[in-house]
Amino acid sequence: MKNSVQNLQLPESIPVSLNVNGQQHNLSLQPWVSLLDTLREHLHLTGTKKGCDHGQCGACTVLVDGKRINSCLTMAVMKEGSEIVTIEGIAHGDTLHPLQQAFIEHDAFQCGYCTPGQICSAIGLMNEGKANTLDDVKELMSGNICRCGAYTHINEAIMQVKEQEAEAAILLKNTEASGLHEVSERDETSVPGAPAREAELVTEAEGGASHE
């Protein structure tokens, strides 16, 4: 596994501007720093997990421009200008995202390590709009390994939120048809697709300057 000597020069840092959870971060990063390590080690947003670092487990799933990706297999410098949403940007202040709430209700996790990736992935799945049945959900959530084996509960949580959304959509449609618009502000957090919003911003202080 020898690297040739020509590589001994370290890569030059490049200014990178990342929009994470609605907050602009102006960083100077070497191009070999993955988006995952940037989130965890540079921005102290440790909610995004490293489970394999090779795109084989899904723990590092984040939303980039509304789409779910493995943050371990992309370099941060490549995401200049993109809107990135991590698990820390999903809740609306103290109000949990419906999926977060459903995960708790259905006990859709045990150790919790895959959970942020599962939730981000589920939001991505709902944004895609391709999962119509439980079987679809199972296939389209198979990029997120849960070693504790909470799959059936994960699926129950997702199906519940999908149904809630479908009901909400019907309600909204009926309301619009009847000319009433006062529910237009209904549960913003459940609207799929909005990759960034004015969420509770997690800043450097969250990661803490000390280990306590």
């Binding site: 789409k67 990706i69 493995n70 991505g124 799945l125 990029g143």
Partner: peptide, 9 residues
């Protein structure tokens, strides 16, 4: 093939 995340990349 792969996973939804990988297919998005």
């Amino acid at each position: 093939g792969a996973s939804p995340q990988l297919r998005n990349m």
